[in-house]
Every structure is written in structure tokens, then in C-alpha cells.
């Protein structure tokens, strides 16, 4: 799990072009949206693509994303349970 979280942080930083943010800067329970990393609606859509491309998880309902993308903790838990690749 720790490995998955680490990998996920790296991927998020790369995919969302988070400048000057390192893996160590993101805590597992930090909110990703709003006050946390300050991600916006396009970032949320980009995370949906990331889930599909990297882990073979298709999220068809954007509302689902809200709870899944709350934090690294929630995201990695969902991936571990539902990944197909």
C-alpha cells in the first residue's frame, strides 16, 4: 500500500504539472482539492483519465470522483480494491 501511495503521488505530480511540489509534500490524508493542492475541475477530469490509463478503472459518474479523490488515502484504497491492471 505504501508503495502504491508513493507511486500515486509521483504520477499526480507529473500528470497535473504540480510545480515545486515533491512526493514528501503530500500527506496521505491531505485534501487534494480546495485548500489542499488547489486542484480544479480539469484536474479532476485528468485524474479520471489517470485511473483508466494506469489502473484500468473506469469512472463513468464524475460525482463518484468526489469521494474517491478526497485524498491519497481514499484514492489508493479505491485503486487497490478495483484495479484491473
Amino acid at each position: 500500500m505504501a508503495e502504491l501511495k508513493e507511486e500515486l503521488k509521483e504520477k499526480i505530480i507529473a500528470v497535473l504539472n504540480l510545480e515545486d511540489i515533491a512526493v514528501e509534500d503530500i500527506n496521505d490524508n491531505d485534501p487534494l482539492f480546495g485548500e489542499g493542492l488547489g486542484l480544479d475541475s480539469i484536474d479532476a477530469l485528468e485524474l479520471i483519465v489517470l485511473m483508466d490509463k494506469e489502473y484500468g478503472i473506469k469512472l463513468s459518474d464524475p460525482k463518484q470522483g468526489k469521494t474517491i479523490f478526497e485524498s491519497i488515502e481514499s484514492m489508493s484504497a479505491y485503486i487497490a480494491e478495483n484495479r484491473t491492471k
Partner: peptide, 9 residues
């Protein structure tokens, strides 16, 4: 086939 919203915009 993985179009990216952040690119498309």
C-alpha cells in the same frame, strides 16, 4: 486511446 482533458482544452 486516452484523450487528456487538460490537453484538449
Amino acid at each position: 486511446f486516452f484523450p487528456s482533458p487538460a490537453t484538449f482544452v
